[in-house]
Every structure is written in C-alpha cells, then in structure tokens.
Amino acid sequence: MSSKKELIKGTLRLIVLKLLSENTRMYGYEITQRVKELSGNQIELTFGALYPTLHKLESEKLIVSKTVVIDGRARKYYSLNKAGLDAAATEVADYFTFSKALNMVLS
C-alpha cells in the first residue's frame, strides 16, 4: 500500500465528517467527486474505501441515511445528526491541533 493510500485511509472518516457538516446531505459518488475537486484531483476515493466508512459512521449513530429514487435508481443520501455535527467539529479541531504538532515534528 502506498503511503498516500495509508494516509487517506487514516483521514477518510475526518473527510467524510467535514464534508457532511458543510452539506445538508450527500450521496456516495457525490462525496468522491467533491473530494477529488477540493483536492485538485489528488485524492480519489474508491468504492471500497468510502462505503465502509459511511456504514461505520451510520452504525455509530453519527450519520443518518435516506434512500430516494432519482433518475430511475435508488440513491442513498447521508447527513449528519446532532451527535454527528458535534463529532465533526471536535474531530476536525483535533486534527488541526495534531497536524500543527506533526508539522513541528516533521519540519
């Protein structure tokens, strides 16, 4: 596994939480596209990485899902609930604190 893949795996949860906290609701493909866009095509989420994270967050009761039929197919939208919003805020804050510290260590 390349180190980039490793890094994505470690931060995927954070990415999903952050994106969802800024949007009322998103579906899987939308998330992959947004991440691609925001990262300037640097981060590409695969099907195999994204969905387990979503399901895990769902089982942790941080996000809720709703299935809607659009364009003749079922689409599953995810959105944060109250606990999810709180988690997103703290986890992102934690990340910045940590990354600052990490920068100091690495630079």
Binding site: G28, Y29, F47, D71, R73, A74, R75
Partner: peptide, 29 residues
C-alpha cells in the same frame, strides 16, 4: 440502468441496499 443493475447482480458483487448503492455509484461515474 436495469441492464447495469442486472449485470452487477449477476456478477454477485453485492446484494440488498449495498447493490443499490453500487448501482448508483456506477451510474454516476
């Protein structure tokens, strides 16, 4: 869409709601 769904199902990739998600993902792409 029906073709994609049917084919993915036949290939045994997934079942149930995961199949729905897979179909949607594939279609979007």
């Amino acid at each position: 869409i029906a073709y994609i769904r049917n084919d993915l199902n036949k290939k045994g990739f997934a079942k149930g709601s995961l199949l729905d998600e897979l179909v949607d993902h594939v279609c979007c792409e």
